[in-house]
């Protein structure tokens, strides 16, 4: 399953389970795992949120869906530590006393980016239909769909490139409004979904 983390609109999930009076951390290991991400990033040549997110996204899909949020953080921290040369997989497994699943290797970046801010509030835009390998912050559920720009936000580095390399392409980001019916034929007629999208993800509609 590609893009297992890209969950918007996916079928088959049940009830949202709310825990009353939930603590910030359930167990000391969660607290440590959270900090280890920042520790591993301290040694990484590309210490960006994009690279961190992509490390989580590269987890084995079944492991991703069956492990908790802070196990995702642990797996990303360990993977980034291995990939930056700080630790070896074998020593992790030896110390842990068993298998230590890591993320899959990163894909090569496949996009150039526009580096532009081509759209204005009120413009109708279509989201580029085809996903590419590697990291992206374009949710699948808006791909190929038409929406309206409701905000022009600041320009930011395109994560699709930033996650994979030291190259930076800064371009416009937008708040884009989609009617729920544009996204799904049988959706609520009085609902809209907004996604925040980089310039590269859009084309004029």
């Amino acid at each position: 399953m590609e893009r297992v983390h890209d969950l918007g609109g996916r079928a088959g999930f049940g009830a949202v389970e709310v825990e009353a009076d939930e603590p910030v951390f359930h167990d000391p290991w969660e607290r440590t795992a959270r900090a280890l991400v920042f520790a591993a990033m301290g040694n990484h040549p590309n210490p960006t949120t994009s690279a961190f997110r992509h490390a989580i996204e590269r987890m084995d899909p079944e492991h991703y869906l069956t492990s908790s949020y802070y196990e995702h953080w642990l797996t990303a921290a360990a993977s980034l530590a291995v990939e930056s040369g700080a630790v070896e997989p074998e020593e992790l497994e030896q110390r842990a006393g068993g298998p230590f699943p890591l993320a899959r290797p990163p894909a090569e970046p496949q996009v150039e980016g526009t580096g532009a801010q081509r759209f204005a509030v009120g413009d109708r835009v279509r989201v580029v239909a085809t996903p590419h390998p590697g990291h992206s912050r374009c949710p699948d559920y808006v791909r190929g769909r038409i929406g309206t720009v409701v905000r022009v936000d600041d320009s930011f580095s395109l994560p699709d490139i930033e996650a994979h390399s030291l190259r930076r392409v800064v371009e416009g980001t937008y708040g884009v409004r989609f009617t729920a019916r544009e996204l799904w034929d049988d959706a609520d007629g009085r609902a809209a979904v907004h996604a925040d999208l980089w310039d590269s993800y859009l084309e004029p509609a």
């Binding site: 290991w29 492990s67 196990e71 642990l74 921290a77 992790l92 842990a96 068993g98 298998p99 230590f100």
Partner: peptide, 12 residues
Amino acid sequence: EPAPVERRVAAL
């Protein structure tokens, strides 16, 4: 089966 998560955290 992965090692228990607490042990993986401690190892890293």
